[in-house]
């Protein structure tokens, strides 16, 4: 689905008069690959280059060196530009600054209008997209009357109305409250599971990454770690070095191991910890398998 090789991106720094005064390397030699249908989380703190990376996937930014391929299309070729933007939709951080229309349904229709979808088909897509994110009953409402989480779900609907293969979400939850955050992540998960859309979630909330298929950790423009959530979070010391959060339960397991208990290092849910400490629960068939995110 996505293939990045030896990607380097330099920003041009300008002085007060607007003259180029040197460059800042935001991405420094990143290689990575994403298979279709995966749920990917990209972790990293501000300035780690994760947002710059995201904007390359939608051809909003172009490589200084190296290549970015989206579904077999090279982002450096100008003729591919609109096809790439349609195939890899993007949801941004600020819910207010990406809704264009004054009515929910019209905003969802904006993308399809831009790519010349016939009227009848637009209506069909708008309805389906809004239903997919659970916002259909709000279709006639003004976006200003919605909560942050609802606005972000409208933005997601606006992207899927263009029928992309991949959605890139650039810190979609950073400005939301805990309820809004859960709504958005749930909607993204559902699209991934039910429609097979590849999701690339850029975030600094580790709890949103726990259920991902794969995590990439960015630091100082480089890919610092990659692996499954268990592989990543079990490296408690390294995550601390990178100033990133680890689930408290994993931290606790880490402490207990230091205290001499022989339990696995890759515990991610409280049920797993309880099982490790007290033996498998008999009366609780569901316990342990599906983790608690809160």
């Amino acid at each position: 689905m996505i293939k990045i090789s030896k990607l380097i991106h330099d920003y041009i720094k300008r002085d007060d008069e607007g003259n180029a005064a040197g460059t800042v390397r935001a991405i420094d030699g990143v290689d990575l690959q994403v298979e279709p249908g995966m749920f990917i989380a990209v972790l990293g703190h501000n300035g780690s280059g994760k947002s710059t990376l995201a904007k390359h996937l939608n051809a909003l930014l172009f490589p200084t060196e190296g290549e970015v391929w989206v579904d077999g299309l090279d982002t450096r070729e100008e003729k591919n530009l609109w096809e790439i933007r349609r195939e890899a939709g993007m949801v941004f951080q600020n819910p207010d600054n990406q809704i264009i229309a004054q009515v929910v349904e019209e905003d969802v229709g904006f993308g399809p209008e831009n790519i010349g979808v016939p009227t009848q088909e637009i209506w069909k897509r708008v309805e389906e997209s809004l239903k997919a994110v659970g916002m259909y009953e709000y279709r006639k409402k003004s976006p200003n009357r919605l909560s942050g989480g609802q606005k972000q779900r409208v933005s997601i609907a606006g992207v899927i109305a263009m029928e992309p293969k991949c959605i890139i979400m650039d810190e979609p939850t950073a400005m939301l409250d805990p309820n809004g955050r859960k709504e958005v992540i749930k909607a993204a998960m559902k699209l991934n599971r039910e429609k097979g859309i590849t999701v690339i979630l850029i975030t600094h909330y580790m709890e949103e990454a726990i259920n991902a298929d794969k995590i990439f950790v960015m630091d100082k423009g480089k890919l610092a770690m990659q692996g499954t959530p268990k592989e990543i979070f079990s490296q408690v010391e390294k995550m601390k070095e990178l100033n990133l959060d680890v689930p408290e339960v994993t931290l606790l397991a880490h402490e207990l191991r230091k205290g001499g208990l022989d339990i696995p290092a890759d515990i991610l849910t409280k049920e797993e910890l309880a099982d490790a400490l007290l033996g498998k629960a008999q009366s609780d068939p569901a316990g342990g398998s599906n983790g608690d995110q809160s």
């Binding site: 909003l60 264009i100 790519i115 010349g116 009227t119 992207v159």
Partner: peptide, 18 residues
């Protein structure tokens, strides 16, 4: 940026929802 990401490129070739 959001408009560009959603393939907005002026009125040329646009269809209308309403």
């Amino acid at each position: 940026m959001a408009m560009e990401a959603r393939c907005y490129r002026g009125g040329e070739g646009r269809t209308k929802m309403k």
